[in-house]
């Protein structure tokens, strides 16, 4: 039985990934450490996975959130591709959060597709962590 109390204690499982041809991993490695320090179970997809691979890992590992980071301007094609694959695999409940060098106009486009956060450079880690906690709770509610 999942009471409110239990779900408060439940650990968030999060997959961090760079789903494109992008080796700039400073941000993603910092986030992985920060999520871990914030008490989450963190998986890292390693470098150069395809969006499909990221979605498959997310499903196989039964994560709550997928955090995507790109610095190569491929976010508009790669982030929605991950989302698409999650849907294909019947896991639309897994939350997709984005970040990187994302111009404001693109943020709106991503939000519309259900990819949230889309944090730019210099965003405080706390803000990212809070957002992940918020969307994870949303997923848990959907799953109930």
């Amino acid at each position: 039985m999942e009471g409110t109390n239990d779900s408060m204690k439940r650990r968030i499982r999060i997959l961090v990934a760079k789903p494109a041809l992008d080796g700039h991993d400073r941000g993603v490695l910092i986030l992985a450490k920060a999520f871990r320090d914030a008490g989450m179970e963190v998986l890292y997809a390693g470098l150069l996975p395809t969006p499909e691979t990221v979605a498959r890992i997310a499903v196989d590992e039964d994560v709550d959130v997928v955090a995507l980071s790109l610095h190569n301007s491929a976010h508009l094609s790669a982030f929605p591709e991950v989302k698409k694959w999650l849907k294909k695999l019947g896991a639309s409940d897994i939350q997709v959060v984005g970040g990187g060098i994302i111009p404001p106009a693109d943020r709106k486009k991503l939000e519309k597709l259900g990819i949230t956060g889309n944090f730019g450079p210099g965003t405080p880690l706390e803000q990212v962590i809070d957002h992940v906690r918020k969307v994870a709770k949303k997923k848990w509610k959907m799953d109930q």
């Binding site: 494109a20 041809l21 190569n72 301007s73 491929a74 094609s77």
Partner: peptide
């Protein structure tokens, strides 16, 4: 794998 990345960076 190049889709969406051609000429971007």
């Amino acid at each position: 794998r190049a889709h969406g990345e051609v000429g971007k960076c």
